[in-house]
Protein backbone atom coordinates (compact mmCIF):
# COMPACT_ATOMS: atom_id res chain seq x y z
CA UNK A 1 0.00 0.00 0.00
CA UNK A 2 1.24 3.46 -0.86
CA UNK A 3 1.63 6.35 1.56
CA UNK A 4 -1.39 8.60 1.76
CA UNK A 5 -1.23 12.19 2.97
CA UNK A 6 -3.28 12.69 6.14
CA UNK A 7 -6.21 14.93 5.47
CA UNK A 8 -7.75 16.33 8.67
CA UNK A 9 -10.86 17.40 6.74
CA UNK A 10 -11.67 13.85 5.89
CA UNK A 11 -11.90 12.87 9.55
CA UNK A 12 -13.99 15.88 10.39
CA UNK A 13 -16.45 15.18 7.64
CA UNK A 14 -16.72 11.44 8.25
CA UNK A 15 -19.41 11.92 10.88
CA UNK A 16 -22.07 13.99 9.06
CA UNK A 17 -22.28 11.56 6.12
CA UNK A 18 -24.80 9.41 7.95
CA UNK A 19 -26.89 12.40 8.92
CA UNK A 20 -26.89 13.72 5.37
CA UNK A 21 -27.88 10.32 4.04
CA UNK A 22 -30.66 10.15 6.60
CA UNK A 23 -31.87 13.59 5.61
CA UNK A 24 -31.93 12.47 2.00
CA UNK A 25 -34.06 9.44 2.89
CA UNK A 26 -36.47 11.55 4.92
CA UNK A 27 -36.78 14.04 2.06
CA UNK A 28 -37.58 11.15 -0.25
CA UNK A 29 -40.26 9.87 2.13
CA UNK A 30 -41.87 13.29 2.45
CA UNK A 31 -41.87 13.81 -1.29
CA UNK A 32 -43.61 10.48 -1.78
CA UNK A 33 -46.18 11.25 0.88
CA UNK A 34 -47.18 14.69 -0.29
CA UNK A 35 -47.19 13.82 -3.96
CA UNK A 36 -49.18 10.64 -3.36
CA UNK A 37 -52.37 10.36 -5.38
CA UNK A 38 -55.74 9.17 -4.13
CA UNK A 39 -58.02 6.64 -5.74
CA UNK A 40 -61.75 7.21 -6.25
CA UNK A 41 -62.55 5.95 -2.77
CA UNK A 42 -60.00 8.28 -1.21
CA UNK A 43 -57.39 5.65 -0.40
CA UNK A 44 -53.79 6.16 -1.44
CA UNK A 45 -52.62 4.56 -4.65
CA UNK A 46 -50.05 1.91 -3.74
CA UNK A 47 -47.31 3.43 -5.88
CA UNK A 48 -43.74 2.66 -4.96
CA UNK A 49 -42.33 5.97 -6.08
CA UNK A 50 -43.64 9.28 -7.29
CA UNK A 51 -42.05 11.05 -10.22
CA UNK A 52 -41.77 14.85 -10.13
CA UNK A 53 -44.25 16.70 -12.35
CA UNK A 54 -44.65 20.19 -13.79
CA UNK A 55 -48.01 21.35 -15.13
CA UNK A 56 -47.82 24.58 -17.10
CA UNK A 57 -50.79 26.54 -18.39
CA UNK A 58 -50.40 28.47 -21.62
CA UNK A 59 -52.96 30.56 -23.44
CA UNK A 60 -54.08 27.72 -25.70
CA UNK A 61 -52.79 24.57 -24.05
CA UNK A 62 -51.52 22.75 -20.98
CA UNK A 63 -48.06 21.23 -20.97
CA UNK A 64 -47.34 18.43 -18.50
CA UNK A 65 -43.73 17.36 -17.93
CA UNK A 66 -42.86 14.25 -15.95
CA UNK A 67 -39.38 13.19 -14.83
CA UNK A 68 -39.09 9.54 -15.85
CA UNK A 69 -35.43 8.58 -16.22
CA UNK A 70 -34.80 5.04 -17.43
CA UNK A 71 -38.40 4.33 -18.37
CA UNK A 72 -39.09 3.02 -21.85
CA UNK A 73 -41.87 4.44 -23.99
CA UNK A 74 -43.91 1.24 -23.84
CA UNK A 75 -43.93 1.20 -20.03
CA UNK A 76 -45.95 4.43 -19.75
CA UNK A 77 -49.74 4.65 -20.15
CA UNK A 78 -51.53 7.98 -20.43
CA UNK A 79 -55.31 8.12 -20.05
CA UNK A 80 -57.77 10.99 -20.12
CA UNK A 81 -61.15 10.48 -18.50
CA UNK A 82 -63.65 13.15 -17.48
CA UNK A 83 -61.01 15.88 -17.54
CA UNK A 84 -58.67 13.86 -15.34
CA UNK A 85 -55.29 13.09 -16.83
CA UNK A 86 -53.66 9.94 -15.46
CA UNK A 87 -50.08 8.92 -16.11
CA UNK A 88 -49.10 5.48 -14.92
CA UNK A 89 -46.32 3.06 -15.64
CA UNK A 90 -43.48 1.05 -14.31
CA UNK A 91 -39.76 1.64 -14.02
CA UNK A 92 -37.91 -1.62 -14.35
CA UNK A 93 -34.47 -2.43 -13.11
CA UNK A 94 -31.90 -2.86 -15.87
CA UNK A 95 -31.70 -6.53 -16.72
CA UNK A 96 -27.97 -6.33 -17.29
CA UNK A 97 -27.25 -5.39 -13.69
CA UNK A 98 -30.05 -7.32 -12.01
CA UNK A 99 -27.91 -10.17 -10.72
CA UNK A 100 -24.85 -8.17 -9.81
CA UNK A 101 -23.73 -7.12 -6.38
CA UNK A 102 -25.14 -3.71 -5.35
CA UNK A 103 -23.11 -1.38 -3.15
CA UNK A 104 -25.51 1.54 -3.21
CA UNK A 105 -29.11 1.96 -4.35
CA UNK A 106 -30.54 5.48 -4.35
CA UNK A 107 -32.69 5.34 -7.48
CA UNK A 108 -36.32 4.29 -7.33
CA UNK A 109 -37.91 1.38 -9.13
CA UNK A 110 -41.42 0.04 -9.48
CA UNK A 111 -44.84 1.23 -10.52
CA UNK A 112 -46.07 4.80 -10.31
CA UNK A 113 -49.27 6.68 -10.94
CA UNK A 114 -50.27 10.32 -10.89
CA UNK A 115 -53.57 11.96 -11.76
CA UNK A 116 -54.43 15.59 -12.42
CA UNK A 117 -57.80 17.18 -12.76
CA UNK A 118 -57.51 19.95 -15.31
CA UNK A 119 -59.22 23.28 -14.66
CA UNK A 120 -60.76 23.54 -18.15
CA UNK A 121 -61.86 21.17 -20.90
CA UNK A 122 -59.29 19.99 -23.43
CA UNK A 123 -59.49 18.52 -26.91
CA UNK A 124 -59.17 14.85 -26.07
CA UNK A 125 -58.40 13.78 -29.64
CA UNK A 126 -55.54 16.30 -29.97
CA UNK A 127 -53.51 15.26 -26.91
CA UNK A 128 -49.89 14.55 -27.81
CA UNK A 129 -47.11 12.92 -25.84
CA UNK A 130 -43.38 12.67 -26.43
CA UNK A 131 -40.48 11.22 -24.48
CA UNK A 132 -36.95 12.56 -24.65
CA UNK A 133 -33.91 12.39 -22.35
CA UNK A 134 -35.94 10.99 -19.46
CA UNK A 135 -38.67 13.64 -19.62
CA UNK A 136 -42.21 12.80 -20.72
CA UNK A 137 -44.03 15.79 -22.23
CA UNK A 138 -47.82 15.71 -22.67
CA UNK A 139 -49.43 18.58 -24.60
CA UNK A 140 -53.15 19.11 -24.10
CA UNK A 141 -54.77 21.81 -26.29
CA UNK A 142 -57.62 23.66 -24.60
CA UNK A 143 -61.13 23.24 -25.96
CA UNK A 144 -62.46 26.22 -27.93
CA UNK A 145 -64.88 27.31 -25.20
CA UNK A 146 -62.05 27.39 -22.64
CA UNK A 147 -59.75 29.67 -24.63
CA UNK A 148 -59.61 33.29 -23.59
CA UNK A 149 -61.64 35.51 -25.92
CA UNK A 150 -61.09 39.11 -26.63
CA UNK A 151 -64.21 41.23 -26.82
CA UNK A 152 -63.99 44.37 -28.78
CA UNK A 153 -65.54 47.39 -27.16
CA UNK A 154 -67.19 49.70 -29.56
CA UNK A 155 -67.24 53.34 -28.70
CA UNK A 156 -70.13 55.25 -30.11
Amino acid sequence: MSLVCWNPNRELTAFPTDILNMQREINKMFNGFFRGDTQDDGSLVPSVWTPAVDVAEHENQYVVKVELPGVTKDDVKITMQENVLTIRGEKKQETETKDSNFHRVERSYGSFQRSFSLPTHVKNEKIEASYKDGILTVTLPKAEEAKPKQIEVKVK
Binding site: A52, D54, A56, H58, V63, K65
Partner: peptide, 11 residues
Protein backbone atom coordinates in the same frame (compact mmCIF):
# COMPACT_ATOMS: atom_id res chain seq x y z
CA UNK B 1 -41.46 29.04 -21.98
CA UNK B 2 -41.20 32.27 -20.06
CA UNK B 3 -44.89 33.15 -20.12
CA UNK B 4 -46.07 29.78 -18.77
CA UNK B 5 -48.13 29.75 -15.60
CA UNK B 6 -47.16 26.75 -13.46
CA UNK B 7 -49.99 24.90 -11.73
CA UNK B 8 -47.53 22.28 -10.44
CA UNK B 9 -43.82 22.91 -10.12
CA UNK B 10 -41.78 19.98 -8.87
CA UNK B 11 -39.08 19.76 -11.55
Amino acid sequence: RENAFLLFNEL
